[in-house]
């Protein structure tokens, strides 16, 4: 998909150009009011730009109404049609497109999101997580060539979000069609997206592979939500085996043997000059590359990209200087282990 839009609304101007390759999942991050949802509405055809162009697989789409674009939308709220049963909701897309196999298609997607048991229920009888799963099935049953996801996990409670995230990951990977996801959660981008675009005040201020943007953010917004330590590797029982062969214990939902990543905040890292042999902690030997102020703290930057935030007093006590070998120590409970988009890590 290739798109270029310009839209002025009062003081706000959206001016973006983006391309999404076949099968690629792009996350759009940005503060409130940065134009993320506007961008999705422009692509879906629910808004018209002042100027621009939009093409998908070589088809010019800007003049096409939303229902002729083949672009699906999963919003923050499930928005299941309240007067229709779950099954009729999922059948809606294929029936609207006059496909004869609408029943089989709907049942297949209900199976896919593990919601066939609710087929006869009305939407009001579903929990938030169940409703969002059904909404995903409904969006996919329409067989869109491009799927737009507008903060699909935001309205879910903490218990339902991880399951939905896992489901999205599985579905997006199997479909092998492009998707654009608006989110404010670095974790969503990490688990689901190949590439990240950061939008601020209607403009793209940063873009790149997910790992690069999240570990070395250049824009202030990305730095605020990201700045995370990410260690890629292969998931194993109870943690991850990094590509360098180090085992990092952590908590997470990923099964063993997947491409994955260990995630922890720089603030969760303690720094030691010698290897502390305490059992529940992960100790990573790193070489210091630099130090910089980070709010009230000092951010230590290691040569392999990992970061640690420590107090100035601790930094002084450790007598740290660049080039020195130290141990970054982090509790297993502070480490999240997630399956991540395969292939991302090789590009960086």
């Amino acid at each position: 998909m290739r798109a270029q839009f310009r839209l002025a609304r009062g003081k706000f101007t959206l001016d973006v150009e983006l391309a999404v390759e076949p099968g690629e999942v792009v996350a759009v991050l940005g503060p409130n009011g940065s134009g993320k949802s506007t961008l999705l509405n422009l692509i879906a055809g629910l808004l018209r730009p002042d100027t621009g162009h939009l093409s998908l697989d070589g088809r010019d789409l800007l003049g096409a109404p939303p229902h002729r674009r083949g672009i699906g939308l999963l919003a923050q709220e499930p928005l299941l049609f309240p007067h229709l049963s779950v099954l009729a909701n999922v059948e809606f897309g294929p029936r609207a497109q006059y496909r004869a196999d609408y029943r089989e298609t709907a049942l297949r997607w209900l199976d896919e999101v593990d919601a066939r048991a609710f087929a006869d229920r009305k939407p009001r009888q579903l929990s938030g997580g169940q409703a969002q799963r059904v909404a995903l099935a409904r969006a996919l049953a329409a067989d869109p060539e491009l799927l737009l996801l507008d903060e699909p996990l935001t309205a879910l409670d903490v218990d339902a979000a991880p399951a939905m995230r896992g489901l999205l990951r599985r579905v997006l990977r199997t479909r092998n069609r492009p998707a654009i996801m608006v989110t404010h959660d670095a974790l969503d981008a990490l688990v689901l997206a190949d590439r990240v675009i950061v939008l601020d005040a209607g403009r793209i201020v940063e873009q790149g592979p997910t790992r690069t943007v999240l570990t070395r953010p250049r824009s202030p917004f990305a730095a605020r939500i990201a700045g995370l330590n990410l260690v890629p590797g292969t998931t194993v029982d109870g943690g991850i085996r990094s590509s360098a062969g180090v085992f990092i214990a952590g908590r997470g939902s990923a099964g063993a043997g997947e491409d994955g990543v260990a995630v922890f905040s720089p603030a969760a890292v303690a720094v030691h000059r010698d290897n502390p042999h305490g059992s529940p902690r992960n100790a990573l030997r790193v070489r210091l590359a630099g130090m910089e102020p980070h709010g009230d703290l000092i951010r230590l930057r290691a040569e392999d990209g990992l970061a640690a935030d420590i107090t100035p007093a601790a930094a002084a006590e450790l007598e740290l200087e660049p080039g020195q070998d130290v141990w970054f120590v982090v509790k297993a409970t502070e480490v999240g282990v997630h399956a991540a988009r395969g292939g991302v890590w090789g590009r960086d």
Binding site: A44, G45, L46, P65, P66, H67, R68, R69, G70, I71, G72, L73, A75, E77, L79, F81, F92, G93, A96, Q97, R138, A139, A142, P144, L148
Partner: peptide
């Protein structure tokens, strides 16, 4: 118009949206 917008992204034309949503 949110339900109508969803229906349109599912491929439903204007009359279908009117009639079914």
């Amino acid at each position: 118009e949110r339900y109508e917008a969803v229906a349109a992204t599912l491929g439903a034309g204007r009359w279908t949206v009117l009639r079914r949503v």
